[in-house]
Design a protein around this nucleic acid. Structure first.
Lengths: 358, 358
DNA sequence: CAGAATGACTTAAGCGCTTCAGAAAGTCCA
DNA sequence: TGGACTTTCTGAAGCGCTTAAGTCATTCTG
């Protein structure tokens, strides 16, 4: 390498080498129709010879005021977040949808206090932000507003000016509860995703859980409890356990505790498939048969629900569609469009083998 | 909002409002010791009043020539990549390790031809690139070199000038094979991760598989085959199936085919726990008992290995450590340090219930 | 009390690129 | 043959910020 320590070449160097103006070199990269094919070739050849790797992305961003990145904000750490296939499926669909525009995803994982630190959001190089199931009161959302970044929220309450996509959490939860009621169950346990901003875990009162800052958690809980209440089962009779995080271990621990309550619930309503799988593993450990001794129903219908033993009864939502819609919303806002009416993907019950008569 | 359509305020606006120079406002944000606490307060107050959200990240990047982002390059799409817990664990550890520096992760997923498109890499706004198990010949690596970006590679062959961390793939695979040989097995099947750059899947000859451009795949395969050869089992007697992607479905399909070969293998060497879990599901579907009819061993020792039914015998590597080391390498290169000797995390056999006597 | 040291700001030169409004030269057609 | 276009390229004004070097009072020293 001749130039290990030499300054990296810039557009000007290439321009000088070819003997044209800087604008022409820029055009060679960005608007091939603005110069003759022949000159363009010459420019590109000179660039290659000088080891010029193309326009500096940062400088380009400053000049165009577009970064080409989408900030994706998560409530939790990466491993916690990515343990949930629901997220990865949604995220992948989103990434695929925005792919043609060449946008990259800038991950902003959550910190100590839930959600990405405000500071990170303020300094993130992105054209738009996507919030995935953040707590209502997270400072990250304020930072987004302060910067005037366009925002798409997924599974969250509507933020003024933002676009939104979500699923019918409450309706889905209601379907799950209804299903179990129809099978004759009367003693229920609920395995809840994180309820509070601070990671905690453990037994919760229904009131406390319903005050969760997490929209989806709150809505699903409402769907469960309202439906049970409609069948004469008071919220106070339902055991609610919060699982800290999404890991199998945590889910198993909470489910174990739940299944050791007296009287033991005969049915478990789980706020995600991940939690449901953990619950089934816990049941197995306790020597309980699913669905013989206890019925389990999940939420999301991620692929693993189909291959678990027994296969999991769950609430299906089209995660791929949700991600795709989110991606389209991103593109729309990026194009300067107004946020449309909030979109909502439908849910339905997928009956498999993890639920049975009481 | 008073200024819905007004130009966003800049550092100059704040400076004007307070009646100081632009440099002073900049210092208020970046070097509080350069001005009196009192003036700083005044500046910050004026900024808030004007709705100035702090220095524009892109402009700051241009001036400092640092973006604060780490480009993370993947071979496959996000959902494919993130189906493997090994990745998420590594990535999370990496993110945590670089967290104090305030670096964000810019995800560059793989495209059609494996690895992120060269163009994306050239235009990515990042200070450093991390390559995770990319094919040796991917253009992405050339783009990184062309830009002169520092590079950390994970589970890949050493690239000149790059830092590297990996695990003893070959040794680990050898342990797995040795274990099964010791249990008396003689008929082996290998469930391989993607071998070729193009997604394909299906039965492969050992030679073809050994020519894989994926370093870890190649090494693990070598570890398996060399060990078996040492026990007098020729590569040609071993059934090698490539699984396209990391999904359970794909793993099940390949394992099903593998388990229907005649004579049926009594032991399956799987290149990841994900694949092994799929294999066990496939065996169950075929009515085969694990480990009664067929032994299965995985690789990685991800959390699910512990909770599967039966619990999975596997090769443990410390993924968290690997990610942490990668993070430290990133920080080191970012600080201008030279890449140290390649690091390698150790592996060992974790014996659980999925393997038994032939 | 002169001269050095300190503190608090400002000046101005970039960082590397995009893009709009021309200029120069060539092409077309009646 | 000459005005109206086209095509091809250039000039120059930003984009919004950082930072080394410099200015000007003040405050210390001995």
């Amino acid at each position: 390498m001749t130039s290990t320590r030499r300054r990296r070449p810039t557009l000007d160097d290439v321009a000088d080498a070819v003997g044209v103006s800087r604008a022409t070199v820029s055009n060679a990269y960005n608007r091939p129709d603005q110069l003759s094919a022949q000159l363009r070739d010459e420019v590109l050849r000179a660039a290659k010879k000088l080891g010029y790797p193309g326009p500096n992305p940062t400088a380009r961003s400053l000049a165009t005021s577009r970064t080409g990145a989408i900030a994706f904000m998560l409530d939790a750490s990466l491993s916690a977040a990515f343990s949930d296939p629901a997220l990865t499926i949604t995220l992948d669909a989103l990434a695929t949808a925005v792919e043609p525009g060449g946008h990259a995803l800038l991950l902003l994982p959550g910190g100590e206090h839930g959600g990405p630190p405000a500071e990170r959001v303020l300094t993130a190089q992105a054209d738009i932000a996507v919030a995935y199931s953040l707590a209502d009161d997270t400072p990250a959302l304020e930072s987004v507003a302060a910067r005037g970044l366009p925002l798409v929220v997924i599974d969250q309450p509507l933020v003024p000016g933002a676009a939104r996509v979500g699923c019918d959490d409450r309706g889905g939860a209601a379907l799950a509860a209804r299903h179990l009621l129809d099978l004759g169950h009367r003693r229920f346990g609920i395995l809840s995703a994180q309820c509070l901003s601070a990671v905690r875990g453990g037994r919760m009162t229904a009131e406390a859980a319903l005050a969760s800052p997490f929209h989806d958690t709150r809505e699903r809980l409402r769907g469960y409890l309202d439906t049970l209440a409609g069948a004469g089962i008071a919220a106070s009779e339902v055991a609610v356990w919060e699982v800290p995080g999404m890991s199998t271990e945590a889910a198993m621990a909470a489910a174990s505790a739940l299944l050791r309550e007296t009287p033991r619930p005969t049915a478990l309503l789980c706020m995600s498939d991940q939690l449901a799988l953990g619950a089934m593993a816990a049941a197995r450990q306790l020597g309980l048969d699913v669905p013989g001794d206890v019925s389990v129903v999940g939420f999301d219908d991620t692929p693993s629900a189909r291959w678990s033993e027994p296969a999991l009864t769950t609430i299906r939502q089209d995660l791929g569609l949700k991600g795709r819609i989110a991606g389209e919303l991103v593109l729309r806002l990026l194009a300067g469009g107004e946020p449309p009416e909030p979109a909502r993907v439908t849910v339905d019950l997928v009956q498999r083998e993890s639920t049975g008569r009481a």
